[in-house]
């Protein structure tokens, strides 16, 4: 009996050590092996979310598509370097953001600050964006100047802190902060101009 019990235990251990591969692992392996159908699956799995990210960072949808293409090619080329220390989606996300950053840097949109728009401080009330469509929201973000858009995306949506953003964009932490507050002021102004009829709080100038 005792020996049987030990065997069972061993078998259990074995099971523990030879954990069956998850679907994601299989998908990743297939992609690394260069199987096009697996790559297609991975693309379809994440393309919708990544498209929104690209649209958020790119000035136009053309650029967004370019980022998308370049980003996914990078993903497939570097998937063997994915350490699985974070969810695959985060990893792909980071690649997309970096690709966007690179593209904007190449186009020198980040180096020169064209922003002359004065940020008018608006008495902000509690905001509810549920009534805005995704296109409207993206339109607002795309309407921001490149560097404001970048800082706003990275801080508000990606959740990086200003120090990290400063390092990513090659600016100081203070600059990142001030650009962010300008960006959000501009967005508030945009929201105020939209003046949705079902908005509870009409923003007073």
């Amino acid at each position: 009996m005792a020996s049987y019990g030990r065997e069972a235990l061993n078998r259990q251990h074995l099971k523990l050590f030879t954990k069956p591969k998850s679907d994601e692992d299989k998908l990743i392996e297939g992609c690394i092996a260069g199987k096009r159908d697996m790559q297609r699956l991975l693309y379809e799995l994440y393309s919708k979310k990544m498209m929104v990210i690209c649209l958020r960072y790119a000035p136009t949808s053309f650029e967004a598509e370019d980022i998308m293409q370049e980003g996914f090619v990078k993903v497939f080329n570097n998937l063997q370097n994915f350490k699985k220390d974070c969810p695959l989606e985060f990893w792909i996300r980071r690649i997309m953001i970096n690709t966007a950053l690179k593209l904007l840097r190449q186009k020198q949109l980040l180096t020169v600050s064209h922003e002359t728009e004065e940020a008018v401080s608006v008495a902000a009330e509690a905001t509810n964006l549920s009534d805005y469509s995704l296109d409207e929201l993206l339109g607002m973000i795309q309407g921001l100047a490149p560097r404001y858009r970048m800082v706003f995306n990275l801080y508000a949506i990606e959740g990086y802190n200003h120090k990290e953003i400063g390092e990513m964009l090659g600016i100081s932490e203070g600059t990142s902060k001030s650009q962010f507050s300008r960006a959000r002021a501009i967005l508030q102004n945009m929201l105020a101009r939209q003046d949705k009829p079902y908005k509870e709080n009409v923003i007073s100038r």
């Binding site: 498209m51 929104v52 649209l55 998308m68 964006l129 508000a156």
Partner: peptide, 13 residues
């Protein structure tokens, strides 16, 4: 609000 609406948003490429 922006995070809520955009973080997990999806769009058809």
């Amino acid at each position: 609000e922006f995070w809520r609406r955009l973080h997990d948003a999806e769009a058809q490429p």
